[in-house]
Computed example of a mutant assay.
Amino acid sequence: MTSPLSLRLSGTWRMLLQSIFWIAFVAWPLLIRPEPPKPPASVHVPPDPKYMVALNLLSVLFFYLNTRVLIPKLLEKKGVGVYLAAVAGVVLLTIALSLGIRTQAVPADWTNVRFVMGTIFPVMFIYALSTTYKVLNDFHHRRQQEKERENERLKSELSFLRSQISPHFLFNILNSIVSLARFKPESVEPATIQLAELLRYMLYESDEDRVPIRQEVAYLKSYVDLQILRLGKKVHVGFDTGGADGNQYIEPMLLIPFVENAFKHGIGLIQQPMIVIHLSVQEDTLFFSVRNKVSSHVDEPKDHRSGIGLKNVQRRLNMLYPEHHLEVQEADGWFDVQLTLVLK
């Protein structure tokens, strides 16, 4: 998202470039001032540069009068009729002033079409240029505002999705510790330490837009270790994260719902339950897969909270990684999740 400071800086640069352009435009006749004619005198005597500077300065004033006063104050607030009437008056006044300045610079010939059009055309050109500039500038400004609003909306929605994932995840972990306290009290202390590590990540690091991939991997490993501590030898867990120690960054807590879902639905009423997790990064592409056995004989009861994590992570993927590829399928007694995304 574009910061207010960057917007101020871009506005400052735009004003600076405009100032440089108009200063050069006004002073141009002085910079290219011709040499005085040598005898015998030329038939055509170039106009005095100071009059050309005055004409250019008048053009600058008309430009900003149209962009800063006529369009925003009259067209946008009073309507087209009032604006066109004001423009007609200002154009006529500007043409009259231009004719007055030009008659001081060169001999006036009101029957010469080139003399008359040479006065009227620059005024109309400046009017067309200023109107076009104002329309394009306002369009660009509206697009920036719409983009800022969209970024704020996405940021708020992402925060909401994270807030939904965190309590749901914490609820399952606390259930795991309760089970340990009943059946393996000696494991409560190491489990609590693991939970502290998970909470530290959730509270202090998941607020970042992106985190190093190694931190996300460490977070997944802490969760898996906690589940292994709770389940013991009841389930076989394979966790392979080879090649994921680079400097790539990822949205925090993006992968945990897939792992959590595997432990939630892949260990109950299943013969020899097995969960296999694989994560690798090749250049800037992440490959992540989670597989768990499912029962083909017993339909597992589901409550209204089932699948909250997966729904949220799908929504986050659509917003943050629109070109991701997610494949979820169940076949041959396995529930398989395959995720591919390009890390930014």
Rank of each mutant, 00 (worst) to 15 (best):
L154N: 15
I173V: 14
L92E: 05
N112C: 09
N151G: 14
M319I: 12
P212F: 02
P167H: 04
A108R: 07
L16A: 13
I277S: 02
H325N: 15
T285M: 09
K311F: 15
P47D: 15
P190W: 08
Q272S: 06
L339D: 07
S222C: 01
D303Y: 08
R149F: 08
L55H: 06
E150W: 04
Q272R: 03
L65A: 07
E323G: 14
L174V: 14
R214L: 12
L70E: 01
A128G: 09
L341T: 04
P167Y: 03
P301S: 12
D284N: 13
F287E: 10
E186F: 00
H236A: 11
K38C: 07
L203N: 12
K184F: 05
K73V: 00
P36T: 09
Q248H: 14
L343F: 08
W334C: 05
L31F: 11
Y127D: 06
A54P: 06
E150C: 01
P72G: 01
R68I: 00
P4V: 12
E76T: 00
I173W: 04
S295F: 08
G89A: 12
I71M: 03
H236W: 05
L136T: 03
P185D: 04
T12P: 00
V80G: 00
E323P: 11
Q338W: 02
F63D: 00
Q272E: 08
V26E: 09
E189Y: 09
L158K: 13
E283S: 10
D332W: 09
R210C: 02
F125R: 10
S179T: 09
Q104D: 09
T103I: 02
N112W: 12
H297M: 14
Y64K: 06
P49G: 07
P257D: 07
Q104I: 00
F139G: 00
F25P: 11
W22G: 11
V116R: 12
P49I: 11
N318K: 11
I20S: 14
T111P: 06
T340Q: 13
Y127I: 04
D332F: 11
P40F: 10
D299R: 11
I270V: 11
E148M: 06
V290Q: 05
H141L: 01
K134Y: 05
I95L: 09
L136S: 03
I256M: 12
I228L: 01
G89R: 04
F121Y: 14
Q271T: 10
R182N: 10
G333W: 08
